[in-house]
């Protein structure tokens, strides 16, 4: 798959791979979330991405942007936790930024995702270092300039880097110092999303 030829089918494969990854890792996500959250992240993400795949199977859009917009809408509707509107906003804003082009380049995808990540930061009022999904997303989008593989690695490193952080957003922030020493579930699922992207691009 050439970087300059990312079509709607590629984006559908990305969402399908992300759903499979979330399904595989649901237990781990919920375990991480039971340490500092409300122990529903795995189930919520599983339900959300299952709905994404179902919607894409029923009506697969012909433009990359429309695939992401559809996925984002499904996540907002079905997840049931804060990750729904956050991931939904990420994908929907990215999709809207890509517009209706039939093919996009990796750099165009990067620009779209950057707009999505900015929208997530605005919606949640968080910044890198707050122990949130942004700690994986922000470095991943930056590294996407180099390659899909680099983006996946940066996301994984970003998720691991949340372990010593003090949570400043969401339910985990009520725990104060006790949030230190646990990997953030949202940053972990963000890393899965970029791992799935690298997987389908390989």
């Amino acid at each position: 798959m050439s970087d300059s030829e990312l079509d709607a089918a590629f984006f559908v494969r990305w969402m399908v791979a992300a759903a499979a990854s979330v399904e595989r890792e649901a237990g781990r996500l919920t375990e991480l979330d039971s340490a500092i959250g409300d122990a529903d992240h795995g189930n919520n993400m599983q339900r959300g991405f299952a709905a994404v795949v179902k919607a894409l199977e029923a009506d697969a859009p012909t433009a990359p942007g429309a695939v992401l917009t559809s996925a984002g809408r499904q996540l907002i509707s079905t997840v049931g936790g804060a990750s729904g509107p956050l991931y939904g906003t990420l994908l929907r804003r990215s999709g809207k930024t890509l517009g209706d082009a039939a093919r996009v380049t990796r750099q165009e995808l990067r620009a779209g995702l950057r707009a999505g990540v900015n929208a997530v930061a605005q919606l949640g009022g968080a910044a890198p270092g707050d122990k949130t999904m942004l700690d994986a997303l922000v470095p991943a989008v930056a590294a996407l300039e180099t390659s899909f593989e680099a983006a996946a690695e940066a996301a994984e490193e970003g998720a691991l880097a949340t372990v010593p952080m003090l949570a400043r957003k969401g339910r985990a922030s009520y725990l104060g110092e006790r949030s230190i020493g646990h990997q953030d579930p949202g940053a972990t699922s963000s890393a899965l999303l970029f791992a799935a992207l690298a997987e389908v691009a390989a």
């Binding site: 907002i76 049931g80 936790g81 804060a82 990750s83 729904g84 509107p85 956050l86 939904g88 906003t89 919606l123 949640g124 969401g170 339910r171």
Partner: peptide, 12 residues
């Protein structure tokens, strides 16, 4: 949390 974020995302 998610109640506030979901409404915000829906308004957007």
């Amino acid at each position: 949390g998610s109640a506030v974020l979901t409404v915000k995302a829906m308004v957007a």
